[in-house]
Computed example of a mutant assay.
Amino acid sequence: MKRVGVIGGGQLAWMMADAARKLGVELVVQTPSEGDPAVSIAQEIVFAPVDDASATEILAKKCDVITFENEFVNLDALSVLAEQGVCFRPRLEALTPLLDKYDQRCYLRDLGLPVPRFFAVEQTENLKSKIEHLGFPVVLKSRRHGYDGQGTFIIQDLAALEEKLSYETITKTLNQSLFLLEEFVPFERELAVMAARSVDGEIVTYPVVETQQKQQVCRQVIAPAEITPNQVAQIEAIAHTLLNSLQVVGIFGIELFLTTDGKVLVNEIAPRTHNSGHFSLDACETSQFEQQLRAVCGLPLGNPSLQCAGAVMVNLLGYENSHSDYQSQRQQIAEIPQAHVHWYGKTQSRPGRKLGHVTVLLDNQNREQAMAAPTPLANAVAQTIESIWYPS
């Protein structure tokens, strides 16, 4: 039986549980808190922050291979373990160009992949002269540790930019070199694709999905996205180029923009399972979590195809500071036909926190409607869920 070490014990690790049982894999998790979701499903726990490499050394002695639930790790320290023979999948060299968002942008650009225009914010530079070719609004991003909209700011003019940089620098004792600026893309829609690569170099891609954000946090995912076959082919080619270049073993999430003139741009890369792939738990023959375990254990990759006409996934986000388990709302949502509710077991709610998600399958009962107009149907389903979940 394989023992897989997982750095990170949040809901992404928790959702590996069913796949681990199916594949006969034991999970050993490194996570800081007894209240973290994956604590309830792991065979063994190493209680420590995910960037504690000494704890990862202990984790390595308990398992055959180590994978990642999140990327907020200390690569330099982990590299010492890799040199000692610890097997990380994906390999650390695949993570190196991705963890800093400026480095990631440069890597994608140098691969010839389409990205928004961008530059690093340096402490001594004249912002005004350098920003002229982007024009306002612009997007300011923290280069490290930003997720779910954290560390991302849409800036309308130079005065607001200088004020934001000054505020962030003073309040967080950072320097400006920890930011990048990129053009604001007036996209038609946001897209994402999950792609996995095996030890043998086999690559499979999941259906391209549309993601819908509110306040820069993903609220809904529609599978499949309503785009042209040519756009699907472009996105699959991007996935193949990226995963082969990095020699990835594992699964990656690739977030993209579809511009108003039909062009595809790469937005960001998540080197792990991802929110935009949660629909696969209920809608696909092989979930993204099973695919990750298959890849890192050296097993053949599974079929990523949809088993239904389509699906809509809605995140159940916190909207208040509370210790409620929202049992009444969850029960109402569960009564929606073809609804699958996944509750992460977190004990505290706060605004924006991911507490769970629900996927509704668009199956043969509404196949014709789903095939004819997948986005309006999915939007109607999502609106029903949100009307139950969020206070009016």
Rank of each mutant, 00 (worst) to 15 (best):
C284A: 12
N275G: 05
L242H: 05
L301E: 09
I251L: 15
A223G: 11
I254R: 00
F289D: 00
A309D: 13
L243Y: 07
F289Q: 00
T286E: 05
A295M: 03
L306I: 13
H278S: 03
E226K: 14
V314W: 09
L317D: 02
L306M: 13
T260H: 14
Y326N: 13
Q288P: 07
S328Q: 13
N303I: 06
R272W: 02
S280T: 08
P304S: 15
Q234M: 10
V221G: 01
T286Q: 03
V232A: 13
G302E: 09
G318C: 06
Y326A: 12
L256K: 06
Q329Y: 05
G253L: 00
L317N: 01
E268P: 02
H323R: 08
T259K: 09
H274G: 08
S245W: 06
I235N: 01
S287E: 01
G250T: 00
Q307I: 13
L301G: 07
A233L: 12
Q247N: 15
G298C: 06
G250H: 03
E236K: 11
V249I: 15
V312G: 06
E236M: 04
S305T: 13
Y319W: 14
A309M: 10
A283P: 07
A225W: 05
I238W: 02
V314R: 04
Y319M: 11
Q327S: 15
V266L: 14
S328F: 10
L265F: 04
D282G: 07
L301F: 09
C308K: 12
V314F: 12
G318K: 04
Q288R: 03
A239Q: 00
Q234N: 12
V264A: 04
C284G: 09
E255A: 08
G310E: 10
A295F: 02
C308Y: 14
A225R: 05
P304M: 14
H323A: 12
E268C: 10
R272F: 02
H240A: 15
S322H: 05
G298Y: 04
Q327I: 11
S322V: 04
F289T: 00
S324G: 11
L301P: 06
L301W: 08
I269W: 01
T273V: 15
F289E: 00
A311T: 07
N244Y: 00
R272V: 02
S328G: 08
F252V: 00
N303A: 11
I222A: 09
N244G: 12
A283G: 11
G302L: 11
V266P: 03
A311D: 08
F279E: 00
E290T: 01
L293Q: 03
L306R: 11
L293R: 01
V312P: 03
A237T: 13
V314Y: 11
L306S: 12
N321E: 15
D261G: 05
D261V: 06
V249Y: 06
H274K: 08
T241V: 14
G302W: 03
N230W: 06
G253W: 00
P300G: 03
A239E: 02
G298L: 03
